[in-house]
Structure formats: structure tokens, C-alpha cells
């Protein structure tokens, strides 16, 4: 019996070794082991703070964000993120979650846009807590957990935005001559040991990336949103700071989200 057990153990550890050796080197296994428990995701604390901020009467007009329409009607948060970006008639623009938050906070609550944009992201080098914008975004997004990624594409402006985003994806510029496609245009590519999704085609890679964002980034000890992700990528390309919620960022997010269609949101996510 003992022998059997031992050889069984040996076999299974051998099997494990083989599995790990056969895989591309990446951080996924580490993540599964360390952060597999979704209830232990530190982002949940930020979600709670975001909910309080969302429901609090704030701004010069002293109203809550429940007075805003994120696409499915005034006050609805459940499932709105699953159907963004989308065209909004009141602004005559396609908006992602965060540009829509700006609309809500300025027009409905009466905040000053320049003031809001002064500090969009927590600085991880200074060990800062997430900003209010980050907390509100992850709260709204988390209300689409488990839902299908389903951005609407019926409106001509939605179709146009996706096309512009696609063209931007291939647009090469900056001192390194990079476009998004330089790193995200082919299968199974890596920078150093970091795996890179291929977002030039619709399907699994885009679904995994978009479906897990906003995410708790362990290396930042903070929740990060899609606006931050785009800003960070552009920074790696050595380009200027992207303007928070600008049509440029919305176009890229619209394209990536359309590539991720029919995936599932698992929110908030957790990544390196």
C-alpha cells in the first residue's frame, strides 16, 4: 500500500513537471496558485469603496451617480459594462465606461472636468490608494461579472469607432516605430517572459484580456482600468500621456472589445 502511494505520488509529481515544462513560461500558474481564490481579490475592497462613491450625493448639484444613464437606463448598473462601449444619443458620441463616467460626473453631478482629470490613476511607485475614478469604474464593471462581452454594433457610429480603432491599432509612430500590432499582432509572442495576446484576430486572446479587466494588478497593488491599460501601453511605446476618456482611447477600446465579443467577463480580474 505504502509503495503504491509513493509511486503514485512520484507519478503525479512527474506528470506535473511535464505539464509545467511543456507550457510557455508565464505567470498564469503562479497566479492560479496564489490568487486563485476570487473572494480574496483585494479589488473587492475597492469595489465596495466605488459603490459608496457611486451612491453618495456628490458634486455641486449634490446628486448621486444613480441619476445617470450608462446605456441601459437611468440608475441601472447591472450589465451596463457588458454592453460598452456604445453610442449615446445625448452626447452624440461612442463612449467607454470611463468617458461616460466623466459625462455623468460633469453634467449630472456638476464636477469640473479638468479637476477630475488632474489625478486619474494611483501612482504605484508612491504606494497610493486607488483614485475615486478607478474605484467607481471597477464598481460599475464588477456588476457585469459572469456576463457575455456584448458591445452593441448596430449604430453606424459604433461601427465607425471600431474601424477607427482598428486603423489606430496598426498606426506606427514614436521613437521605436511601434504600433499596437508590433507586440499584439501574432500568436504566442512574448516580451521577455511576458505572454502577449494576439488582438489582431477575434477570439480567445482578446476575450481573456478584455474579460478580466478592470483588474487588480499585483505588481501595482492597485486596481487598473482599461483607460490605464491603454495609457500604460502607449507609455511603453514612448508616446505622450493619453488624454483620459478621449476618442482615441475609446476607439482602441471599442476595437479590442469587438475582438473579444462573446467572451465572458470575470470581474474584477487579477493579474501580475
Amino acid at each position: 500500500m505504502k509503495k503504491l502511494l509513493l509511486s503514485g505520488l512520484l507519478m503525479s509529481s512527474l506528470a506535473l513537471t511535464v505539464v509545467y515544462a511543456a507550457e510557455e513560461p508565464n505567470a498564469d500558474a503562479y497566479r492560479e496558485m496564489t490568487y486563485g481564490d476570487r473572494d480574496a481579490n483585494p479589488a473587492l475592497l475597492v469595489v465596495d469603496r466605488g459603490e459608496e462613491l457611486f451612491k453618495a450625493k456628490r458634486g455641486s448639484k449634490n446628486v448621486s451617480m444613480e441619476e445617470c444613464d450608462f446605456g441601459l437606463g437611468k440608475g441601472v448598473v447591472k450589465g451596463v459594462y457588458a454592453e460598452l462601449p456604445r453610442y449615446f444619443q445625448d452626447t452624440d458620441r461612442v463612449q467607454d465606461l470611463e468617458s461616460r463616467m466623466l459625462t455623468c460626473m460633469t453634467t449630472v453631478q456638476g464636477f469640473d472636468e479638468a479637476e477630475l482629470k488632474k489625478k486619474t490613476y494611483a501612482n504605484e511607485k508612491a504606494n497610493e490608494d486607488n483614485t475615486d475614478l478607478e474605484a467607481i469604474a471597477v464598481y460599475i464593471a464588477a456588476q457585469s461579472d459572469g456576463m457575455k462581452i456584448n458591445p452593441p454594433i448596430a449604430h453606424p457610429k459604433e461601427q465607425e469607432m471600431i474601424k477607427v480603432g482598428e486603423a489606430l491599432f496598426y498606426h506606427r509612430t514614436g521613437p521605436l516605430d511601434f504600433s499596437c500590432a508590433s507586440c499584439h499582432g501574432a500568436d504566442k509572442q512574448r516580451i521577455r517572459l511576458q505572454n502577449l495576446g494576439n488582438f489582431s484576430k477575434a477570439g480567445a486572446d482578446a476575450q481573456k484580456a478584455i474579460g478580466g479587466w478592470p483588474t487588480y494588478r499585483v505588481s501595482h497593488a492597485a486596481v487598473r482600468t482599461m483607460q490605464h491599460r491603454i495609457w500604460d501601453c502607449e507609455g511603453q511605446m514612448r508616446l505622450p500621456d493619453t488624454e483620459y476618456g478621449s476618442p482615441l482611447t475609446v476607439a482602441l477600446i471599442a476595437y479590442l472589445t469587438s475582438q473579444a465579443k462573446d467572451g465572458t467577463y470575470v470581474l474584477p480580474g487579477m493579474s501580475r
Partner: peptide
């Protein structure tokens, strides 16, 4: 594309 690049950065 050109328009969005011109307004897309700080």
C-alpha cells in the same frame, strides 16, 4: 484617425 491622434494626448 488623424483627428483622434491630435486630440488623444495631453
Amino acid at each position: 484617425v488623424d483627428q483622434y491622434i491630435s486630440t488623444g494626448y495631453q
